[in-house]
């Protein structure tokens, strides 16, 4: 176990450790993955795991939650991103391969990936 020799080391350790309990801390970003039977059948589980891995890689603070059937079964897997008071953006037909760009554009650069969007709901 590392012995902390300075305040700086403590801060560094804290930053690392914060990820472990990310799901418990407040955040403005929530990513919701539809996990109804339809979603899972369409590969939502893999999409979600890809999202988790991507967030981890990029060190982005966001909550990932699941819901049941959102209702647009033909567009599954559906991924919902909400940031603060921004409108809720729903992307459809997401595959694990698309996750990297989705995260980069939407969360890292603040650019909604318009071509994948299937719905927007205000607040």
């Amino acid at each position: 176990m590392p012995r902390l020799k300075s305040v700086e080391e403590l801060q560094k350790l804290r930053t690392q450790l914060q990820k472990n309990i990310e799901s418990r801390t407040e955040t403005s970003t929530t990513i919701t993955v539809g996990m109804g039977t339809c979603g899972i059948a369409a590969g939502a589980r893999e999409v979600m795991q890809a999202i988790l891995a991507e967030l981890d890689k990029r060190d982005i603070n966001a909550h990932v939650t699941t819901v049941g059937c959102i209702g647009m079964c033909h567009k599954e897997p559906l991924v919902d991103i909400r940031q603060g008071d921004e409108p809720r953006i729903t992307y459809g037909n997401i595959t694990p391969a698309m996750v990297s760009r989705l995260i980069e554009d939407h969360l890292a650069n603040g650019q909604v990936v318009d071509e994948w969007v299937v719905g927007r709901v205000a607040g």
């Binding site: 929530t30 049941g68 209702g71 809720r88």
Partner: peptide
Amino acid sequence: IDLSSVPPAG
């Protein structure tokens, strides 16, 4: 209850 109609708070 289906929560999809009620987005979770926080």
